[in-house]
Structures are given as C-alpha cells and as structure tokens.
Amino acid sequence: MFEFRLQAQCPVTGARAGEFVTPHGVIKTPVFMPVGTQATVKAMAPFELEEIGAQIILSNTYHLYLRPGADIVEEAGGLHSFMDWHHPILTDSGGFQVFSLATLNRVTDEGVECQSHIDGSRHMMDPEWSMEVQQKLGSDIAMCFDQCLHYPTTKEEAETALARTTRWARRSKDAHTREDQALFGIIQGSVYEDLRRRSAEDITSIGFPGYGIGGLSVGEPHHIMYEMLDVLQHVMPFDKPRYLMGVGHPSNLVEGVARGVDMFDCVLPTRNGRTGTVFVSTGRINIKNQVYARDFTPLDPSCDCYVCRHFTKAYIRHLYKAGEILAARLCSWHNLHFLIKLMEGVRESILNGTFPAFRKNFIEVFHGEGDSVENESL
C-alpha cells in the first residue's frame, strides 16, 4: 500500500526526485505540504489548493483532538471526508505541542501532562494516545510521538530527549495497527552531530516506511540546520522518504533538497500572507508598504498564479488598509503557489539533470532573508 520509488538523484548534491505511493494518491517528491492545522489550510478552500497543485496537506493531532474531537472526525468518515480533501494527508503526532506549549506541559518518560490552551482542561499525551487519535483521524501518514527541544539546549538535555524519543517511537510502533496508514519515525538530537547520528541509527533500527527530521528550524542559524542535514544525508535510509519538519522558507527548501530531503511543511506561506508579506522571485515584499499604493503591476510579474493574473499590488494593498478578508486570502494563495511551483521546478531540474544550475540561479536571484520559521500554529 505504501512504496517509495526513487526516480533520479543529482550526482553532485544528492538531491532526489521520487514518488511515494499512498492510499489517496501518489506524492511526487520533493514536495511542500501546506499546513491545515485545524483541518483547513487557513484562508484556502480545498478546490483552491487543488488548483495551485497541492498534493498533500498536514493536519494537527493535538488541535483536532481538542476540537472537534477525534471521535467526531472518525464518525464523519475520517479527515478526508470531514474536510473534503481526497488527496494524501499527513498528521503530526502532537509531540510538537510538547515544545510549543511548554509552559502548559509537564514531561516525563511516560508522556506529557498537558493543559489545554483553550479551556485549561488537563490531558495526558503519550505515544498510545497519539496513535489512537491519528488512527481515528485516518491520515495517510502518521508521525511517532517525540520530544522536540528549543534552541539552544544543552547536550545533556538533548541526549535525554533523544532517548525518550526512541522509547516513544517503539511504543508508537507497538500501538499502531492501521495498515492503510504509514507511520514515520522522527530523528532528534538538536544540533549535536554525534546525537543526530545516534538518533538516526536508533530510529531506523526500529524500522519505519519513512522518517521525519525533527528539532530543526526552532531558532538555530540556517547554516547549523544545513550542517545537521549534511550529517543525516549519509546515515538515513536511501530507499525511504525523508521529511524535514517545519521548514518553509524558499531558500531552506532548495538547500534542504540539495541535502537529500524529500518532504517539507510549514505555516510560513499562510502566516506571512495574513500579514501582507509575500514571496516573489527576487525575495519578499510587504504589500502594506506605501510604495505600492500606486503600483499597478502584479505581486510578481514572473508568476502565473490566479492572484498575479488578475490583481495589482495597489489593489491588494488597498484591501489590507480597508481590513478586507480577501487580502489575506490572495496573499496566502500566492505564497502557497510560489512554494509549490518552486518544488515542481526543483523536481524537474533533478529529473533532467540540471539541479546544480537551478540551485545556483535561485540563490543568486532570490535575496529574501530567512524568516523565523515555525512548525505549526498554536
């Protein structure tokens, strides 16, 4: 039911193009996955995501457990039916909330005692809980329960979290029984090379159909993230998909692919869209700036998305200034289109053997500074 087919690899960098077969369709990699935390990609309808070429979206186990509740989603026929998205879905484990809601949580080897950020109610999150919820949600890809740490963190703390993540991965696999759902393991180890290697060895020895790389894009400089990816590129299984969690800045995507990563997700394109920041071929702009008040050109003249074909910077700026919801929708639409088409271009260049030139040209032209990327919204 699940198969990863490697179609091409760049001999210079190790960038890969492949296909991952799932019950709801074949995912062509490398791929960017829009984040639909609450069973919806913010400001976007499912048919609009299809129009821009989204292949797979990510939803959040913790948030859907709190509302509307996993039982309700299961009664609706699972996430695909509930949100009318009939393509692949990946659900995270809830483990990231151990990190992002740290002030509300108490972590032990058994699991995480969590206080709801909605109503203050108390809940116990552990690998068995995560597997039960994700199986009720019915995603194509589920993630093992893990512990992610802030940056910086001490090596001792990172080693403790690594060991806990490994134990939780074994418990996750033991509790996971749904055959039409692939369970991915997650590699931790913070920014310590030896811990990353150890985690990769420990998690891959358990055996999963795919592997996430967690604990990056949590505040560390980009060059350190790349150093960790360089380490993992040579120790992760060659014949399984590799998923870098929580990364969505365009430069990070291209550099991640260059280091053998196949899958990415991030809230960045929609979060930026809601604040008026948009990606363009030469970097990024904030459409709310006064300079665009009489700019009657598209957001990006080289873009063929619906937004750029029909609207101008002046109009979209006007929408923001007038407080119109359409402003966030249009900028989110454009940003998602930008990242999805970027990945399509990367994939094509790997298949035709021109990825090194594609990478060099993109980095030279795209001057956008790295944003603070985050794995999921709260």
Rank of each mutant, 00 (worst) to 15 (best):
G260N: 03
A258D: 00
R271L: 10
I285V: 13
L326C: 01
S121G: 11
P46I: 07
H86F: 14
A314N: 09
V254K: 03
M131D: 01
E3W: 01
F208C: 10
M236Q: 07
D84C: 09
T13L: 13
T354C: 05
N361D: 15
T282V: 11
H63Y: 10
F366M: 03
L342F: 06
I52C: 06
E227V: 02
F47R: 14
R198P: 02
S349Q: 00
G370H: 13
A175E: 05
P269E: 06
Q181L: 07
I186P: 00
R309L: 12
S121M: 02
R347P: 02
R5Q: 13
R164Q: 13
M125N: 03
I325T: 11
P301V: 03
L149A: 07
E3F: 10
H176L: 05
P127R: 05
C331G: 08
I325N: 04
V31L: 13
G210F: 11
K42L: 10
I203T: 10
H24F: 03
G248Y: 06
C148M: 08
L339F: 04
F20T: 04
L330Q: 09
I287E: 05
I89R: 06
R16M: 09
P209A: 02
T154F: 11
D371L: 12
P250T: 08
V346K: 00
T108G: 12
V267N: 04
A15N: 02
W85T: 12
Q147I: 13
C305E: 08
V254N: 01
V254Y: 00
E156M: 09
V21F: 05
C331T: 15
A200T: 02
H334C: 11
E220N: 10
Q55V: 07
G78W: 05
S332A: 15
G248N: 11
L101R: 02
R271Q: 05
H86A: 00
K288F: 00
S199A: 10
P241R: 01
N375L: 14
R170K: 14
V280T: 15
D146T: 05
T270E: 09
P269C: 06
P237I: 07
M83P: 09
R347T: 01
F296Y: 15
S205P: 08
P241L: 03
I141C: 01
T61A: 06
E348K: 13
I56D: 00
H24V: 04
A258K: 13
I213R: 09
L319S: 06
L330N: 04
P127K: 03
S377Y: 09
I52E: 08
L336H: 04
V373S: 10
L104T: 11
Q181A: 09
Q7T: 12
A158G: 12
L79H: 04
R16D: 06
M131C: 13
I325V: 14
L58R: 04
M228G: 04
Y211C: 08
A15Y: 01
H123S: 07
G18A: 10
